[in-house]
Amino acid sequence: MASATDLIANDIQFEWLLRRGDTALVLGHRVSEWCGHSPVLEEDIALANVALDLIGQARMWLSLAGEIEGQGRGENELAYLRDAWDFRNFLLAEQPNGDFGQTLMRQFLIDAYQVPMLEALKGSKDERIAAIAAKAGKEVAYHLDRSADLVIRLGDGTAESHRRMQQALDALWSYTGEMFVSDAVDTAMADAGLAPDPASLKAAWQETVDAVLDQATLTAPEDEFAHTGGLTGRHSEHLGHLLAEMQFLQRAYPGATW
């Protein structure tokens, strides 16, 4: 079996896997915060489904990360027993839900990235990565279908829904650039044929985003400024609050199971 272990250092792979797993976990938790609070019952269930898909993806990435790290940490230890500075998710994923429009816009902007990322990962030289990508890719294709559809409907909806969607886009736009920044970890993974260079995903993302925003009658800000730091553990204030809630049970009652 062509294992990634043979190709590049474990700590690089571990770091890269945390980026995938933490982004899925943090976004999944954010979406799960809507459970019981969505505007309509049907949307409540749909969002819970998306959250569960993402948490399932996080489990796969973090399990593999723990395996490769080889320090005896599994998905649970990585999810519940790390502090904010050890998380490697995109800053975009941890941004607060805001209103329903902001949640949908955040989802759409990440879905549009995840689709080409997972598509490329299906060709990873590490068959474990390729297998996760194949499973997650089907889920994310539906997420994008749904989030893009809703962004269009609400952007091109009433004056009020249009205003809220434009506001959401303006608020989140500066967090999208981080997804396409390549650092030494990304370069090593790309050189080993394990993962695409994030910069190579920009064109596909841009094409999806442009087409959807155009239909949604929304305008992306011109500003190219990009917040970064998520991939090196420098997070916005929001992640700590999210973890406090997500990790409470394991922190207060270590090892609790049911």
């Binding site: 049907e42 949307e43 269930i45 749909a46 539906y142 279908d145 559809d149």
Partner: peptide, 9 residues
């Protein structure tokens, strides 16, 4: 949307 909601529900 009804199809999408039906898928999810």
């Amino acid at each position: 949307m009804a199809i999408k909601n039906a898928r999810d529900v």
